[in-house]
């Protein structure tokens, strides 16, 4: 009898624990759902063609859009990607191919530290290194700051993807008399492409909403501008500026912009998942 009640108690404990994990897992999802619903409710009504294609109007005038911020965001993110992707992937390849070298050890350490650096600090650094010497705010310096933030994500995801590829694959390629660069370009990268791409996508999603580094670098610009050497508007900056303003019209614009940013990031994440599944190379 004693033993039986003991078992019952243990079964109860087990069930309780399971319930707890399910509950907590659900609790993680709840805030996300609320945020999504709230932002979409507030922002979706503001979004229309006019909103996307027009410049912000001065306070008091009806209408107005976020075209400048949208274009600016695209340009800044594009430039950041152009800077960060080749560096990141090559660095990731180096780390995965040279697991034991001294240089790899130190660069891996640096990448880890870089990942932990607050974005505002990166913004300040970019301000002192790029904005000041170049003599003014520019979209390019913003891109550089964002690229620095992208790097660790791309490097680590590339490295981890390639490390998962079995050594036998490299050996198969070398045994066919292939030189190093062909092994990398024709075998290693194609086999790890889904992992590398998902790393890139995630890093883009990560920087799409960064505000802090842009405050010191791209600065913001109320007009449509395509010149990367001049200040440029971007969505997170616009949201920051308009949401902290006292005008209701601008609040509405901020909601709409938030909604666009959110949809962009969501789409990017879904796209990543699709790519990973579609291009996944079955080992």
């Amino acid at each position: 009898m004693q033993a039986q009640s003991n078992v019952k108690f243990r079964i109860g404990k087990s069930t309780g624990f399971q319930a707890l994990t399910v509950g907590l897992a659900f609790a993680c999802v709840v805030p996300l759902i609320f945020i999504l619903i709230y932002i979409i409710q507030a922002g979706i009504t503001k979004i229309n063609w006019h909103f996307i294609t027009n410049l912000p109007k001065p306070v008091g005038e009806a209408g107005g859009g976020v075209a400048n911020a949208l274009l600016g965001s695209m340009i800044i993110i594009g430039c950041a990607s152009v800077i960060a992707i080749p560096f990141g992937i090559l660095c990731g390849i180096y780390l995965s191919e040279n697991k034991t070298s001294k240089l790899a050890y130190w660069s891996r350490l640096c990448v880890d530290i870089l990942q932990g650096v607050p974005s505002i600090v990166i913004g300040i650094v970019a301000y002192f290194w790029l904005v000041k010497p170049l003599g003014g705010f520019s979209a390019l310096s913003g891109s550089a700051a964002l690229a620095i933030m992208m790097l660790p994500i791309i490097i680590r995801s590339t490295e981890e993807t390639l490390l998962m590829l079995p050594d036998s694959l490299r050996e198969a390629a070398y045994a066919l008399g292939m030189p190093f660069h062909r092994v990398i370009l024709k075998v290693i990268i194609p086999c790890g492409i889904s992992g590398i791409l998902s790393g890139v996508m995630l890093s883009v999603a990560r920087i799409a909403g960064e505000t802090a580094p842009l405050l010191f670098t791209a600065f913001g610009n109320p007009y449509l501008s395509g010149n990367v050497l001049k200040p440029m508007q971007s969505l997170p900056l616009l949201i920051f500026n308009y949401a902290t303003s006292p005008y209701n019209d601008w609040h509405d614009l901020a909601w709409g912009a938030s909604c666009i940013l959110l949809i962009f990031v969501l789409l990017l994440n879904i796209f990543t998942k699709l790519i990973t599944r579609k291009w996944k190379v079955q080992l």
Binding site: S168, L169, E171, A172, Y174, A175, L176, G177, P190, V281
Partner: peptide, 18 residues
């Protein structure tokens, strides 16, 4: 050149998966 003249087959089958 050596590896072009001397082929090798490994312990685990390792066809290129891509």
């Amino acid at each position: 050149f050596v590896r072009l003249k001397i082929g090798m087959v490994f312990q685990r089958p390792n066809p290129f998966p891509n």
